[in-house]
């Protein structure tokens, strides 16, 4: 059963941990997929093509969607998954670092969605899925610029849903909690004893595990599909129950 057959999908950050899982799932569900990323992935799933794409350059973004307009007659699914984090407090964050986090996590989303709009409007039912985060609601220590950028993504998502819903474009954000990606491993590495920290993080989840990129791709797939045709303007937290719980001092 293919949930996305006949659809086209453009995934920024498509070479990364979660982005790659999304591209693979989309292709499996019958979509034609472009994984857009600054880095070329080591391997590509069948049905996925890679395109070099820098979300921080408006010229590159504009050129990409000009070219895409010649390739595809519509864009059904846009996933804004490109993102970085810097593990610092405001005191240690330089202005350059702050601006870089916002350039990729927020401005890149704005530019991509802005220039994708003409193609999205040609879809009979377009779905835009932005990557917010659990950290847009609740702060992880030493992750200031990232937390702030994800809060901006959440507000941007609601604003886009309000403005472009009447044009048949749905806009939602996915807010993952802890997911096993290179980004999470880096966060662990910077925090000392990796194994005991990993176990402590697992134990604090009601589901006693952190997520996998496939867990997140499962929700992205649903939001991308016509099954979610009434879902718009929402922030979809998927975190193994972590944010349902008042945090206990167990670490």
């Amino acid at each position: 059963m293919a949930m996305l057959s006949g659809k086209t999908a453009f995934v920024t950050g498509g070479a990364g941990g979660i982005g790659a899982a999304i591209c693979a799932r989309f292709a499996k569900e019958g979509a034609e997929v472009i994984a857009a990323d600054v880095a070329e992935p080591a391997a590509l799933p069948e049905g996925v093509t890679w395109r070099r794409y820098d979300v921080t350059s408006e010229a590159a973004v504009r050129q990409t969607f000009d070219e895409l307009g010649g390739l595809w007659d519509k864009l059904d699914i846009l996933v804004n998954a490109a993102g970085i984090e810097i593990e610092k407090t405001i005191e240690d964050t330089t202005l350059e670092e702050w601006n870089r986090v916002f350039a990729i996590n927020v401005t890149g989303m704005f530019l991509t969605a802005k220039h994708a709009l003409p193609l999205l409007r040609k879809s009979p039912g377009a779905s835009v899925i932005n990557f917010g985060s659990y950290d847009g609601f609740i702060a992880d220590p030493g992750l200031t610029a990232y937390c702030a950028s994800k809060g901006a993504v959440h507000a941007l998502t609601r604003a886009m849903a309000c403005d472009h819903g009447p044009e048949g474009i749905r806009v939602n954000a996915i807010c993952p909690g802890y997911v096993d990606t290179p980004m999470l491993q880096s966060f662990f590495r910077d925090s000392g004893d990796i194994e005991s920290l990993q176990q402590a993080v697992r134990d604090v989840h009601p589901l006693r595990s952190y997520g996998t990129p496939d867990d997140i791709a499962n929700l992205v797939n649903w939001l991308a599909s016509d099954e979610a045709r009434y879902a718009s303007g929402q922030l979809w937290v998927i975190d193994g129950g972590l944010s349902a719980q008042v945090q206990q001092m167990r670490l």
Partner: peptide, 14 residues
């Protein structure tokens, strides 16, 4: 939805 728990998901057309 194996990783989804403890959430209240709004479905309201925006």
């Amino acid at each position: 939805s194996a990783f989804a728990t403890g959430q209240c998901y709004t479905l309201d057309g925006g």
